[in-house]
Amino acid sequence: MSQTLSSVRSRAALRTSARVCGELLVVLVMAAVTIWILGRMWSVIWPLIIGLLLTTLTWPPTRFLRRHGWAPALAASTVTVLFLLSAVGVAAMITVPVASQSGELTTGVVEGIHQVREWAAGPPLNIGDDQITEGVDTAVSRVQGSVDSIITTVFTGLSTVVNGVVTALLAVFLMFFFLKDGPRFLPWLARQLPGRLAKDVPTLAARGWDTLGSFVRSQALVGLLDAVLIGLGLWLLGVPLVLPLVVLTFVSAFVPIIGALFAGLVAVLIALVSNGPADALIVLVIIVAVQQLEGNVFQPMIQSRGLGLHAGMVLLAVTLGGSLAGIVGSLIAVPLAALLAVAWNYLREQLSDPPQETDPHEPQTAATPSL
Rank of each mutant, 00 (worst) to 15 (best):
S330F: 02
E134G: 09
F262V: 12
T133M: 14
I230T: 04
V268E: 13
L347N: 09
Q3G: 06
M1T: 00
E362I: 00
A263P: 04
I287L: 13
P97K: 08
S2L: 11
A333M: 04
V88F: 14
E134K: 08
E104V: 00
A91D: 03
I132H: 09
S43E: 15
G231S: 11
F215A: 03
I50W: 10
P256G: 02
G157L: 10
L320N: 01
S86N: 13
H68T: 13
V246W: 06
A18P: 03
I287H: 04
A12W: 05
G264C: 06
T211N: 06
T368H: 15
S323M: 15
L281W: 14
P354S: 15
D210S: 06
S218I: 07
R9S: 07
G164F: 13
D129H: 08
W119I: 09
S274N: 07
F250D: 01
L293T: 12
L269Q: 08
G182K: 00
I49M: 10
N163Q: 14
A32G: 09
G89M: 07
A121M: 02
P360T: 03
P47G: 10
A91M: 12
V44F: 06
G69F: 13
V239I: 12
P194M: 11
T319Q: 11
R142I: 15
P369M: 12
D210R: 11
H68F: 04
P60R: 07
P354W: 00
R196Q: 11
L261R: 09
V20C: 00
S141K: 12
A139D: 13
I94K: 05
V8T: 15
V8N: 15
I45W: 01
D210G: 10
A205N: 03
A253Y: 03
L28Q: 04
S146M: 12
L193I: 14
E111D: 14
V136F: 10
S7C: 01
E104N: 01
D210Q: 11
E349M: 11
L248T: 00
L241P: 00
V98S: 02
V98A: 02
L65F: 09
S218R: 02
V136W: 07
A168W: 05
S146P: 02
L245H: 06
L85A: 15
L241D: 03
D210M: 00
A92S: 13
F254D: 03
K199H: 05
A12C: 03
A366M: 10
L324D: 12
I258A: 14
A205D: 07
P335E: 10
T62I: 03
W36L: 15
L237D: 00
W59D: 11
T249D: 01
L307C: 04
V161L: 14
L309C: 06
V172C: 00
F83Y: 15
R348C: 08
F173M: 06
I132T: 11
A325F: 10
L331C: 05
P355F: 02
R63F: 03
G308N: 07
A289F: 14
A139L: 14
A121H: 08
V334P: 02
P47F: 09
P300I: 14
